[in-house]
């Protein structure tokens, strides 16, 4: 198996019309700056309000997911401590939000199970699960219970398209693509 090549993944993901790419540490200020930048861009594009709002919502949840749950990247890559990649692009008239970050192998199962469950559920079932977690579960300031992922799937109206690329004995690279439906 060929080892995971970060640059190759970036090249593959930044095809089509790219509105924003970011590679580095995810901080609260950075999130503010990205949101501001993208909001201005969408504003100037005469995009449908509904689509604009969906894109913005998915962006917020995706970036804040990274902010709250990120693992330290492998030392070999000499990357920032909160390293992640974020790309907003458009292909076939639909917006795609891609994120990538390194995760320890021991977290993969939990993430995979959670995303598979979300992908398996219907729109109405997702709504019920969201309400159940919102109302019943104690969760920390970091969010929790996977509410962020459920919200992303609900707002986007699409499946979570994820991949885990083995990197070394301790880490994999976790990529997540979300396409925002324009229904």
């Amino acid at each position: 198996m060929t080892p995971f090549d970060l640059q190759q993944w970036i090249d593959k993901t930044t095809q089509g019309e790219v509105f924003a790419t970011y590679k580095g540490a995810i901080t609260a200020d950075l999130i503010s700056n990205i949101l501001n930048l993208i909001e201005n861009k969408l504003e100037g594009m005469n995009e449908d309000l509904k689509v604009k709002k969906k894109v913005f919502n998915v962006l917020v949840e995706s970036l804040q997911n990274l902010y709250h749950h990120i693992d330290e990247p492998p030392a070999e890559e000499e990357l920032d401590r909160n390293f992640a990649i974020f790309i907003l692009s458009k292909a076939d008239g639909r917006y795609k939000i891609s994120t990538g970050n390194f995760v320890r192998h021991d977290r993969i199962k939990m993430l995979r199970d959670r995303m598979d469950q979300i992908n398996y559920l219907s729109r109405d079932e997702l709504k019920s699960l969201y309400k159940l977690i919102l109302n019943n579960e104690e969760f920390s300031d970091k969010g929790g219970g996977g509410l962020g992922m459920i919200d992303i799937a609900r707002k986007a109206g699409n499946k979570l398209n994820y991949n885990f690329y083995p990197y070394n004995e301790k880490y994999s690279f976790f990529s997540l693509d979300v396409i925002v439906s324009d229904f």
Binding site: V60, E61, Q64, F139, D141, G143, L147, G148, I150, D151
Partner: peptide, 8 residues
């Protein structure tokens, strides 16, 4: 807009 962190 509100995020899931605010929803609770």
């Amino acid at each position: 807009y509100f995020n899931t962190s605010s929803s609770k």
